[in-house]
Design a protein around this nucleic acid. Structure first.
Lengths: 304, 304
DNA sequence: TTTGGTATTTTGCAATAGTAAAATGCCAAA
DNA sequence: TTTGGCATTTTACTATTGCAAAATACCAAA
């Protein structure tokens, strides 16, 4: 039983899950529970557990099944070892598109040849790109890339959109605070402020920041706001993954994040909404100032 | 050369195009121009023209090629004759899903059997549904439907989202008025107010109204706002297609639409934005009142 | 009942070839 | 140059079959 992509992906997620939960040694890992949680059947879960066991990260219970053992945190390796081909290919296509190496219109065969993909891999990629909204099918043959966040204009557009929906989402009538995830994000931001920010990688920083904003908007319980922000973030990620973030600005944003979460945790929603507005508009201004003088693909102030 | 789906679709679009342009008899239809406009190659355009010619709606020029003839409006038939199988199937699946006849999780085979589809048809359908955001792939096998606008809650959510973005879009700095489409929409709305509303079908009414709102938001030139509204509208269409609209309320909305466009055409953007806000919130209230007493799937006030 | 073990069924990807349809390149005429 | 006619190339859908992997059903033990 070789690890299929799904199996190693699941192993990674289970390890991550355990790192977050941090259960005491000897806790039983119930196959059905995990299967339900990760929305797959027991088969791949079982194989993933097997895999983690052979890596010495899980023990076996006397009566069968796997249990956690007392694993020092260091030995929950970032299971990135198996570089997910799909993800890499996805980013590569995005970069090629941003660099204008890919024409606006492409056929499936072209892509398949160019990136040496099987039909299935290509189908998966196109599905993903489609659902993220930067490609569409032409009526006849082939696909057309949609304009992405290539220009500063589009960039500013994305911030004005967020400036509209994020403060409004906090004032939604159905807004209910999810304390746990917010407190987790707050801690993360505090650690960044306390110095981690100077060592963490740009993509990781980007992810932490967008995770915080998404955690907040999810409290609105309005899926239109939630989806709206997530769609913007996925596009922004493609743009910002290639930039290195200027930590001198980023740290200011992180401080603001902490303050923002504190307002929310104190149930001061109106103040939080106002603060969000101010937070986003200052990021926006910064971006413009920052990109005005330098090349579009230069250093980004950014974060959020 | 039988008409393929693409060809009959193009014939329909070309007829519609001509009805809108209303060129004088004898105007030459340039294949390459049409091909570019509809983003296909010349082949299917040529076949579509051929088709329209055999239906007696186009003449031939002395030196080859097709020209328009003096066709009374009545004889530009709504080319709906060939019921697009894909579209019908799409609506059927949406309805089945809304009626809870389809489980939350389905496999491709299940769908293929249930609706008697070929692999390709199914792939096309899934792609479309995916891009509209109400289905997603599971990590293993199969697909999961996402919660749609099934509840009144979600319904109200969609209006609050619009209430946030639509008035804001009018105030976007990049806002530039597209007079032609707006004036066309205004005329359409005026005709509705003048009595057409009592005879036009519910889906047609829905389309006219959403077209107006989309025409307005497109002036913002901010693709995040534009996309946001379009996504909401696609979902709303699925819900509202099954409802018959109460014309006594709808006509009020149409009058407001005329007024709204007039404000825009007079360049009173601030007033237009305020008016939009009031317009949307009254629709929203109406919806709630209307659905509160009756069944969810009863008569909708609606329109916008 | 809950759980893991095992066997069985089902799924959907891969590879292939054939084919209709769409895209494209070239040419001649206006 | 613009345009339509025509021929050719390319694309992507269809329909196979085989197979690995995922889902599922059933059973026994705790």
């Amino acid at each position: 039983m070789q690890p299929t992509p799904l199996i190693s992906e699941l192993a990674k997620q289970i390890a991550e899950h355990l790192r977050a939960e941090n259960p005491q040694a000897g806790t039983r890992l119930v196959e059905r529970k995990l299967a339900e949680r990760f929305r797959v059947s027991r088969s791949p879960i079982r194989s993933a557990l097997q895999l983690l066991h052979t890596q010495g990260m899980l023990g076996v219970a006397g009566s069968g099944g796997f249990i956690t053992i007392d694993t020092p945190e260091a030995s929950w390796p970032e299971q990135e070892s198996i570089p997910n081909n799909d993800e890499a290919m996805y980013l590569r296509i995005a970069q090629d598109r941003l660099d204008n190496l890919l024409p606006e219109r492409v056929t499936e065969n072209e892509l398949q040849r160019r990136y040496d993909l099987t039909r299935g891999e290509l189908a998966r990629l196109l599905r993903r790109i489609l659902s993220e909204g930067w490609i569409e099918r032409l009526p006849g043959h082939g696909w057309a890339f949609l304009p992405m966040l290539t220009s500063i204009e589009a960039y500013k557009d994305s911030y004005r959109f967020r400036l509209t929906i994020e403060p409004a989402a906090i004032l939604e009538p159905g807004f209910v605070l999810d304390r746990a995830p917010l407190e987790a994000c707050r801690q993360q931001q505090q650690r960044l402020v306390d110095g981690e920010i100077w060592s963490v990688s740009s993509p990781a920083l980007f992810d932490m920041n967008s995770k915080l904003h998404e955690a907040i908007i999810e409290c609105s319980r309005n899926s239109f706001f939630i989806d709206g922000l997530k769609r913007v973030d996925r596009l922004r990620r493609l743009m910002e993954y290639r930039q290195s973030l200027d930590r001198r600005y980023a740290i200011i944003r992180c401080r603001e994040h902490v303050e923002l979460v504190d307002l929310l945790l104190a149930d001061r929603r109106l103040d939080a909404s106002k603060f969000m507005k101010q937070h986003l508009s200052s990021v926006s201004v910064e971006k413009v100032m920052n990109t005005a003088g330098t090349a579009v693909q230069g250093v980004s102030s950014g974060d959020d």
